[in-house]
Amino acid sequence: MNILVCISHVPDTTSKIHFIEDNTAFESRDVQYVINPNDEFGLTRAIWFKEKQGAEVHVIHVGTPKADPTLRKCLAIGADKAFRINTPALDGTSVAQELAAFVRNNPYDLIIAGRESIDYNGAMVPGMLAALLDIPFVPNCVGLEIDASTAVAEREIDGGREKLKGSLPIVIGGQKGLVEESDLRIPNMRGIMQARQKPFEVIPPLEAAAATEDVKFEKPAKKAEVKLVPADDLDQLIELLHKEANVL
């Protein structure tokens, strides 16, 4: 069983978001980057398969050397090999094209990506990748079992869950639920030392074209001061919600 985990590299969830160059670019200075949380759940599930069922786990990122520490961390947690396709990630389409070209040359049984990247919130790379490869795809995946030829995957839907079965290879858009928070691993010394010996390949890109471009960013307008209502006058709250906010 060969598993590929797609890793996006994102600002830590506590990051304050700022823009530079006339609001055309994200200010990455002083920002701590981490493995996209959705991908960390997927990677942990992949390592679980490796330990319980036997599998080789590779991680891949499309991007610049800035993400190398993130990929090393994946190796320290338990991935066997890392790849970085050496080109800036322009948009979901170009990233999916780069990944698809790689997978066509290096087939995998299972490809786990995340539900979405928490920075640009595209939720598109895994679906596009599956469509380009013409293989099944299950997004928002909260449960995954595999055997030699099939996957049974549960996806979260609005107000419930759907259980689906598909044959391998398959692409998964994973999230919390694939494993629990308490299953996530913190790299230990041994893992970090071993990671240094593990293969790390830098791959030349296709230089696939983007289909979209973020030309400007904007922060939400400053909020007006909260209106406080005394706890012993809730009629006032109802009045405000009814007449002023128009939501009752």
Binding site: G92, T93, A96, G122, M124, M128, A131, N140, A211, T212
Partner: peptide
């Protein structure tokens, strides 16, 4: 932007070589 729409849109985008902006 439902869970189903977000399932469908990337598949469509790849099939049609379309650009896709969510949210």
């Amino acid at each position: 932007s439902s869970a189903d729409a977000k399932f469908l849109a990337p598949l469509l985008a790849a099939k049609l070589n379309a650009g896709y902006a969510p949210n």
